[in-house]
Design a protein around this nucleic acid. Structure first.
Length: 423
RNA sequence: AGAGAGGUGUCCGAGUGGUUUAAGGAGCACGCUUGGAAAGCGUGUAUACGGCAACGUAUCGGGGGUUCGAAUCCCUUCCUCUCUGCCA
């Protein structure tokens, strides 16, 4: 959520920045400031009258103690008048606050200066490319054929149990998932992250704090009996550890990593992307999350990007790093780098990680603050990234490491899987 | 899931309608004292909003209500503990 004070001081800049994100209603900036002016005015009037009521009430107490009933009753009558004035003020103030809040949550985060202006994925900026395109043997297959050939994943039975997009991993397929999770977590822990195993459902307040509500309500599975949401990413429960917390400056940076299944309705998605493991409703992911000093978030973002890159290099996959353009970025992010790996069998790039700096957008919503040396309260910055999401890594390894005899494994995974080859 | 007991500041803890402006203690910070330290003494020690400021307003798990006045009474909801039930 954007801060009113920032919008007030940077009215035109905010509008320009919103344009980079192709935000349709830049005039809402003015609406917010008008509403805030109205709120201030109402509060001043309300506080003034309430102060009179409070003082008079105290006086009544003193008069009662003295036994001066008559004067006490007279004062009560005066208070009654003030309270009548208070009623409409209170109502108006509540309404203005709701309007202000509802307007404010409509703003996406403002993009970082580095974010390109484009609108579509084609306009994302290629930052770096690494690794080699694997040379596959003749007759090499896409992962959906390989997993069926070697019985690693059974989509049909997953559909029977739950519905389409809920894969059932079997035997070596299941064990390979476990090996990947374990490797990714160990890799993150070695870089200084603390492991968490969070709840896989969150309440409304948590979903709101990280920006899933109200923006992505339809994308989450909702357990209505208890009003819990199945998490679309571990980012939600883990970032919420620090909701409504005032940290000490010395506590920063907080580095957290967590494995979780991720549940996404993917309502409205269709077409070429959805085949096999390319897009599913439930998948496994290991996430990295940091909460840092605002002066450090740019630097930390670069570190996180370098960290994920190292992980992909260790898997021997060809990859590229894209800086997302304003139109392709997430709602709450100030700047996002996407990682894609090349699938030689599908002859296309698959997104496997997204690393973002949210700056104070989430922490302001969450009220995650820290106290600096001077005792001043500031909002921290939050960042997160996948390190890594499993299905497309699974797909890429299965495809790129396929041989005529079976499927090989990257060296780093052999000990985790307990064999030299997957098949 | 049922019954009961609870939720107060950084922590412990008092407080069942009116100088509570949340007692008292601990911790922490600063100062005095000291050769240095401890002890002792003194001062300070939540957050949000409004205000240049003085200060005002709100907050005793959350929300709502009664009252001139609520930490205190009522309703509701969440959470914790104990017992019972069920269960991996």
């Amino acid at each position: 959520m954007l801060q009113v004070s920032f919008l007030r001081q940077n009215r035109e800049l905010a509008k320009q920045k919103l344009a980079v994100k192709h935000f349709a209603q830049p005039d809402l900036v003015d609406t917010v400031i008008d509403l805030d002016d109205e709120r201030k005015q109402l509060q001043a009037a309300f506080d003034e009258t309430q102060a009179k009521v409070n003082a008079a009430s105290k006086e009544i107490g003193a008069l009662m103690a003295k036994g001066d009933k008559e004067q006490a009753e007279a004062t009560k009558a005066a208070v009654g008048e003030w309270k009548k004035q208070l009623e409409p003020l209170k109502e108006k103030m509540a309404q203005v606050e709701i309007d202000l809040q509802n307007t404010l949550v409509q703003f996406p985060n403002l993009p970082h200066d580095l974010v390109p202006k484009g609108k579509t994925p084609e306009e994302n900026e290629l930052v770096k490319q690494g690794g080699e395109t694997p040379k596959l043997h003749a007759g090499a297959q896409a992962h959906w054929d390989l997993i069926s050939k070697y019985n690693l994943v059974d989509f049909e039975t997953g559909s029977k149990i739950t519905g389409s997009g809920f894969p059932l991993y079997i035997g070596k397929g299941a064990k390979f998932q476990r090996a990947l999770v374990q490797y990714f977590l160990d890799f993150n822990i070695a870089a200084g992250y603390t492991e968490y195993l969070p709840p896989f459902m969150v309440n409304e307040a948590s979903a709101f704090a990280t920006g899933q509500l109200p923006d992505k309500e339809g994308q989450m599975y909702h357990a209505t009996a208890d009003n819990f949401y199945l998490i679309p990413t571990a980012e939600v429960p883990v970032t919420n550890i620090y909701r409504e917390v005032v940290l000490k400056e010395a506590d920063l940076p907080l580095q957290m990593t967590a494995y979780s299944p991720c549940f996404r309705r993917e309502a409205g998605s269709f077409g070429k992307d959805v085949r096999g493991l390319n897009r599913v409703h439930q998948f496994e992911k290991v996430e990295i999350i940091q909460i840092v000093h605002p002066d450090k978030s740019d630097e930390v973002l670069n570190e996180m990007v370098a960290h994920v890159e190292k992980l992909l290099v260790s898997l021997g996959l060809q990859y590229r790093i894209l800086r997302l353009c304003g139109g392709d970025m997430g709602f709450a992010s100030a700047i996002t780098y996407d990682f894609e790996v090349y699938s030689a069998a599908q002859e296309r790039w698959l997104e496997v990680s997204s690393v973002s700096n949210f700056q104070a957008y989430q922490t302001y919503r969450m009220k995650c603050r820290f106290k600096d040396a001077a005792g001043k309260i500031n909002f921290a910055h939050s960042l997160n990234g996948s390190s890594l999401a499993l299905p497309r890594i699974f797909a890429a390894i299965v495809e790129n490491y396929q041989t005529e005899a079976g499927i090989a494994l990257p060296k780093v995974l052999q000990a985790y899987f307990g064999a030299e080859n997957l098949i």
